[in-house]
Design a protein around this nucleic acid. Structure first.
Lengths: 226, 226
DNA sequence: CGTTCTGTTGAATACCTTCAATTCGCGTGG
DNA sequence: CCACGCGAATTGAAGGTATTCAACAGAACG
């Protein structure tokens, strides 16, 4: 079963012995989800949090008109809805799978016990929350870059840096990317076309090649227009 | 000296005995700042974090063109730059006083020792980070409500709710409010004038009276236009 | 009382969104 | 293997909102 392997890659459990990891895997329930399944909805009572073992999912808010703003794309190994652990009793957003996914659930009580037994887990959790905070700081910064081309350039560069390549795979649909960037598919499409027309990028479905990262940097910094 | 009194109101130290609080106050250096003083700048190496004992300050990012996006207004009792503790060695934003302020500094090592001695501090810190995460979630949501009137309405309602009154004091200049809302002073000014013209609010310097909170709710929810 | 910073107002511009119509891609079924 | 159908993606035209630039008014401060 993939469960044990996956646990080794969970930052929250970094530093734990293989034995402890095994116990972990047995102690907590694990569920499989199909694509586009909703794991929880905003406002639902939350009794614990989750860790994504495999697959991919999105955390998003819905405006009253029904438009979604994606807050996060969760990748394997990441916990989500940890906020529910300490300050909230309701989920503050939606979680929905993008791909077939495997998810572990940790109840509040079980996790608190865990922390009591092993303080290093508390430290790991602090590190994760800090990291997420920094990510949000960045997201806010990007969203307040008022123009979409800047945000797109910033995002593409982020992906390229993360993956260490100028060939990046979006991993999500363009509609979802639009939501993540705080815009709509039409606008994103136009801007991609414009960037492609200027020889900055090549778009092939969900794969994008950065031809001119230097110029994209200038764009992201607002020192240059399309 | 106000230091000891202030410590009692610090959520991070909730649950500590007066004795422990006293020790705390003596163990960590404390500094006074004049208004508009910069406490730290983005990119500076960070060796610890801070707690605001009195006064008020802003945490903000600067775009390359020099426009500032305010992330936070820090009120007395709140810690700031805690991110630096766990995942970062550099400050991810600027901190600048708005009013005369008193600030306590806790070095990374000292704080880690603290956590070791008293796990409840770790739990408090987790709660604070979670809370902040939720706040950011909300800020992101608000920023992606693309129209400024909605954001302003949401912010005014937030203040009114927090203070339990329809007479709210902004506490910051309108230029800063504009930055917090992700816009510019001119736009904010126009929208306030419009709201006032419709009898929704009364603006008197930095004090605002909400005449029609119900309608502001509709606005914030995007169900109504100005 | 003057200087400076904050806030306001106007006109022109730029960008994004909306709405509608098409096209493309791909899995399903014939 | 090809045709169909559905969702995703693209493109065009029109409209709206925020920004920019510039000038001015007002408040705070020395």
């Amino acid at each position: 079963m993939a469960k044990k392997d996956a646990l080794g890659g969970v930052p929250l459990f970094r530093g734990l012995s293989p034995n402890q990891l095994d116990l972990m895997g047995e102690a907590f329930p694990c569920r499989h989800y199909a694509p586009s399944e909703i794991i929880f909805s905003e406002g639902e009572p939350a009794s614990g949090f989750y860790i994504l073992l495999s697959g991919r999912l999105k955390i998003y808010k819905l405006s009253l008109e029904g438009k979604e703003q994606i807050l996060h794309i969760i990748e394997p190994g990441e916990p989500f809805a940890e906020v529910a652990l300490f300050s909230e009793t309701r989920f503050p957003a939606y979680a929905e799978t993008i791909e077939k996914s495997e998810v572990m659930f940790l109840s509040r009580n079980a996790f608190r016990q865990l922390i009591g037994n092993d303080p290093s887990i508390a430290m790991n959790m602090l590190a994760i929350l800090s990291h997420r905070l920094k990510y949000f700081t960045r997201l806010i910064e990007d969203l307040s870059l008022k123009e979409v081309p800047q945000r797109l350039a910033a995002y593409l560069l982020f992906l390229a840096k993360r993956d260490g390549s100028n060939h990046v795979a979006l991993g999500i649909s363009k509609g979802q990317l639009a939501s993540l960037l705080g815009t709509i598919p039409e606008t994103l499409s136009r801007i991609m076309a414009k960037m492609a027309g200027q020889g900055l990028i090549v778009v092939k479905g969900r794969k994008i090649t950065l031809l001119n990262p230097e110029y994209l940097e200038l764009l992201a910094g607002g020192k240059q227009n399309l």
